[in-house]
Amino acid sequence: MMDYIMAFIIGGIICAVGQILMDFTPLTPAHVLVLFVTLGAVLSGLGLYQPLVDIAGAGATVPLPGFGHTLVKGVIDEVNKYGLLGVLTGGLRSAAAGITAAVVFGYLMALIFNPKPK
């Protein structure tokens, strides 16, 4: 049960920070997403994001900084295994499920559904 509560709280805080950025700065949602994914990657590189994942589980991996973290974690793993080539192969390998799902499900949904103006 504790893992759900931690996921809720940490995930909620990350989203609330995003909301503050959108409401108080001229940043658009797209800017916030780009900022968050980059921030997640940098924090992960500094070794600061993994501890958050250990505490919050999905609360840290589901928000977009988690996507940056997944990319960096994959790169570092493969650099350890294969050296320099890992810099290029690790990121997409570890994020493959999310990215492929996004492209394929996104495409399929766009084929099936139409926008509904309100």
């Binding site: 959108m22 949602p29 926008p115 509904k116 103006p117 309100k118």
Partner: peptide, 18 residues
């Protein structure tokens, strides 16, 4: 037209923006 103007000037209709 609400929809043609939104897509030209702003966002797609189904984008979850505030």
């Amino acid at each position: 037209h609400f929809c043609s103007a939104e897509r030209q000037y702003r966002f797609p209709l189904e984008l979850g923006n505030q």
